[in-house]
Simulated assay, not measured.
Amino acid sequence: MRAVVMERFGGPEVLRVREVEDPEPGPGQVLVAVEYAGITFVETQVRAGSGPWGRPPLPRIPGNGVGGRVVAVGSGVDPGLAGATVVSTTGGTGGYAELAVADAREAIALPAGLSLRDAVALLADGRTAVLQHRRARIEPGEWVLVEAAAGGVGSLLVQLATASGAEVIGAARGPDKGELVASLGAAAYVDYSLPGWERTVAETTGGEGVDLVFDGVGGRIGAQGLAALRTGGRAVIYGMASGSWTEPDDRVRVVPGTALGAAEIRAAAQEALGHAVAGRLRPVIGQTYPLARAADAHRAIEARATTGKTLLIP
């Protein structure tokens, strides 16, 4: 099969398509003929050797979320699963390929009324957004700032927060993303490439500051986002796209996270898919790339030249 193989850490150029042996499902596993593979920002950090969980062993095939048809099952797996169309995580590796192995317990049958493309777009970002939204406990009428609001997770958080009755301010880089963020329900858009954007956020609320910040960026942007909070406001810190976590001060109440098991994370993904079927959540798929252009996809993501979710098509 064809797969993207990474033999060293570095820039996007280390992602190269190779012919490799077809994988075989082991006990408790399924083999999926991949139609779509999701890309997350964290995967670009892992490729560069700066991921939040250290450096994984090499060589490796990147990719942790796929969708397609089950073409084989390992021992101990219901044979009836063969032929089913599913979305699944892959355990952190193997997704950028024509065939991918996944734990059968992680495979989620494609819900009726949802395209496979949308389901793959929601698999990782959807569960993240659902879990962070749940963690925030938004009250109707609150002012909520969503960083990276035109991105995969951010675009979903805008929708979930709006559905909870919040007044959402979406923040992203560049003036061209405002229309998209507004279409998702945001009350206002702020370009955080502009100096003093955090003051604009506070002014939008009438000078009081926002009640809640969803911070998936970290670094300078994260710190500026937290500066837009009212005193005693709260922050959900869930990512470090900048390369470093946001360090809050004493005036900010960080909403604590909880350790979740695989079953709870899978349930959050299913909840996101259910929201999409019901029309309550719309994934934004900004761009797709063929497998051979995985390096170009990573370049675009790192350059902040993408909107919504980026997918690979083997």
Rank of each mutant, 00 (worst) to 15 (best):
A268L: 10
P62Y: 07
T288R: 10
V73R: 05
R47W: 06
Q29R: 14
G196P: 06
G243N: 09
P57H: 11
F214L: 06
G76T: 06
T128A: 13
R220Q: 14
T44C: 10
R266Q: 13
A235V: 09
R135W: 05
T205Y: 06
S50G: 00
V236I: 04
V284C: 08
S244Y: 00
K177L: 04
G11T: 14
R55L: 11
G28L: 09
G26F: 05
G113Y: 09
P25M: 08
T307S: 13
K309R: 14
V217S: 02
V210T: 03
A272R: 08
L15P: 04
L160P: 03
A82C: 13
R69D: 07
T128K: 00
P25Y: 07
E13D: 15
A172M: 06
G65R: 09
T90G: 09
R69I: 13
R280N: 14
A268N: 08
Y96M: 01
G80K: 11
G92S: 11
V236P: 01
V73E: 05
V73G: 02
E139G: 00
G11P: 15
V17W: 01
L311N: 02
S242C: 12
I61N: 09
G274Q: 09
T89R: 14
R105M: 08
G178P: 08
L145G: 02
A82E: 15
I169P: 02
A241D: 01
A182K: 14
S75T: 14
E142N: 11
I169L: 11
P56M: 11
S75K: 12
G49H: 07
L31G: 06
P290R: 08
V217M: 04
I265W: 01
Y96D: 08
P256I: 10
A235S: 10
G28Q: 10
E35P: 00
L160R: 04
G239A: 13
G152S: 12
L58E: 10
D125L: 00
Y36F: 15
A227G: 04
G76Q: 12
E247H: 13
T205A: 05
L110H: 06
A300R: 14
A150N: 03
L180D: 07
L160A: 07
A188K: 00
R173M: 02
N64T: 12
T89Q: 13
V255D: 07
V66L: 11
R299D: 11
P175H: 12
T231V: 14
L31V: 10
L110V: 10
S183L: 10
G219W: 02
A82F: 00
A112K: 14
G10D: 09
R127H: 15
G286A: 08
A100R: 05
G216E: 04
H275F: 15
G239M: 05
A292I: 00
G286P: 07
E302W: 06
R253N: 09
V17H: 01
P52N: 01
V30C: 08
T231W: 14
A300L: 05
T288K: 05
S164G: 01
R266N: 07
A235Q: 03
R304T: 02
L99S: 02
V77K: 05
V130C: 02
R266K: 15
G68I: 11
L273S: 09
R47N: 10
A272H: 10
L31E: 09
A171P: 03
